[in-house]
Amino acid sequence: MAEQPAADDFSVLPITLPSLPSYPVQSTHFVYLRKNAKVVTKSDARSLFLVNVPADSTELHFRAVFASLVGAGRFEGITFDHNAKAPTTSHEPAYALRLAALGKRKRQDQEAQHKQDEEAAQLPKLWTRQTHRSGSTAVVLLADEKSVELVLKAVRKLSKTKKYPIWGDGVGDKAPPLGSQWLKAHNKLSYPGNDAMQDMVDAYFTVFNRKELEAAQLARAMQNEPDEDGFVTVTRGGRTAPARQEEAEEAKRKMLERQQKKKDETQNFYRWQLREKKKAEQVEFLKRFEDDKSKLKAMREKRRKIQPDS
């Protein structure tokens, strides 16, 4: 969305922040919103793009804000920016990954079962309530395209009425609390329990082993199966199984070591070797002297005069 040049089509949605005992100042938070510019899917058309959402936002908070703007029932959901950007790491064996690009898709009916397994292998959450980086973005999904217009209109009207929605109004106890309870819960969530973790790990490796097996089968199958253009993919390894990458690297390392050892054994043997060594030392020595000299020069430049401290 950054490629959209028009910055001025953002509407400003001010939200009143109630004062708190620890910070008794009533202030206003400004959320900037506009129609979602990049309409690709149907739901894009009925969504709003928000910038600068408060760090402690939850879906409940925004549901309340939008309810106060255009009444209940128009707000469907919100996706916070950082949820969308979670890094995706592959959990498949490395060579399975490489082969997957070449291989065929799996059968649909197995997929469902696998999906269930993979969900069981997910790591638990560590926080009861996720915070958002200050100034980050979100996308709000509304009931229909008409709601979008309604919201924008309501926001425009705010600048006249000055009746800003109040942050946290109507959320009450429904959102998980922050503060000490939040930190306490974090400590608790960080220790999910040994049994639960055992189950998770078991599920994970069921999936992992299956994938590994599939990959091995695939690799073997592809060893002598030409693709549609008639090419045969060359995979590593012999006839029985493809080689693993580390094995190849290990072999290379060993070879280098052997070479080095051979070289070491024939050092310091001939006179010319000693002579060359001496020469190299001298050069080294000269270099060091030059280094020191340049250091001194740097020192001189830095503090024009060398003076003892008083």
Binding site: S22, V25, F30, P54, D56, S134, G179, S180, W182
Partner: peptide, 21 residues
């Protein structure tokens, strides 16, 4: 920079852990 909003946010995130800003 919306300093007041940020401080108010800190107060909300910290909740009862923060005595005073």
């Amino acid at each position: 920079v919306d300093r007041e909003a940020i401080l108010s946010e800190i107060a909300r995130v910290g909740g009862d852990v923060i005595e005073k800003i």
